[in-house]
Simulated assay, not measured.
Amino acid sequence: MEPLRRRMRVRFGDLWIADSEDVMLLHEPGRYPVAYFPRDAVESAALKVEEYSTEHSDLGLTRWFAVTVRDRTTRRAAWCHTALPEHARVLDGHIAFAWRAMDAFYEEEDRIVGHAADPYHRIDIRSTSRHLVVRDGNRVVADTWRPAVLYESGFAPRWYVPRADIDESTLIPADGQTFCPYKGLASYYTVAQRSRAAWSYIDAWPEVGAVRNMVSFEPEKIDVDIDGHRLHLEPGQTVLPHGVDRGLDPDELLVDASERTVYTS
């Protein structure tokens, strides 16, 4: 548990129900970080205690709240720990909100999606002159001397290829997208008969703009060689579900423009 050291706000309906510069961030092994707000930074009238509690293996008894604003109510939308052990006293009197139960979380005026930002999750992108070749059997799908490699905390390196160095006739758009809280929305491609063997952050977020609209290929599904050496799928990070809201999916981003309004105080 540590201070987030950023102003964070929570929106539900047309009301800011939490607003604080003193948010605490809880890290648990293999789980997404969770933001806890001081009780006095939460709109108390929005919280209704439920006759429901759970037991956290490390943090003790957990009391749950419904969140109500005007005629709208979401059950089990917030919680606090009411019998904290000594080592976790810093969370005493703090409230956490189920991410998907709220309409939006913000840092200052920027919406944060997926989960609270993890200050220890890092992405570095490096350009290189190594020779990358992608093949579907004997057919060359991509051949480049200017790939970019993306290093992300806990994950295997991913190699991205400029579209000019790809035979784009081999890329068939596939149904479905996935969402990364750090990179944005990923679109997928079938390569020959290899389903979803490639992907692209067509409109990658500014923080990873160096790979915007480039294409990465899955070495588990198609042959990828770097300097003549075959790549193999490496173990990546496995993230466990957390609470009631841990589905990372595009629905959080694919909303009407009216729902993407940036609210100001």
Results as ranks from 00 to 15, higher is better:
R11V: 15
E207T: 08
V49I: 11
H131C: 13
L240S: 01
D58K: 07
R126A: 14
V133F: 10
W79T: 00
H115E: 11
W64M: 11
R39Y: 05
S195N: 03
R70L: 14
A148Y: 14
E2L: 15
N138K: 13
A98W: 05
A117P: 00
Q193K: 03
T73G: 09
D245R: 00
V10K: 05
R158L: 07
R72I: 14
R39L: 10
A96L: 10
S216M: 13
V239Y: 05
M1E: 13
G247L: 10
R139L: 15
G228R: 01
M102L: 11
A148G: 02
D227W: 01
R260I: 03
E86R: 13
A204Y: 08
R212P: 02
V67G: 10
R5K: 15
W64F: 14
T82P: 03
A66E: 10
T238H: 04
P85H: 08
T68D: 04
V239T: 09
H121W: 10
C80Q: 15
H242L: 07
T128R: 12
D19C: 03
D165E: 07
C80G: 00
G209F: 04
D92V: 02
S53I: 01
V34K: 07
V134G: 12
Y36E: 03
D103Y: 08
T238R: 03
P241S: 03
S169T: 12
T238Q: 02
E50A: 09
R100A: 14
W159A: 06
R260D: 15
R70K: 15
L47N: 06
R111A: 14
V49K: 12
D40S: 08
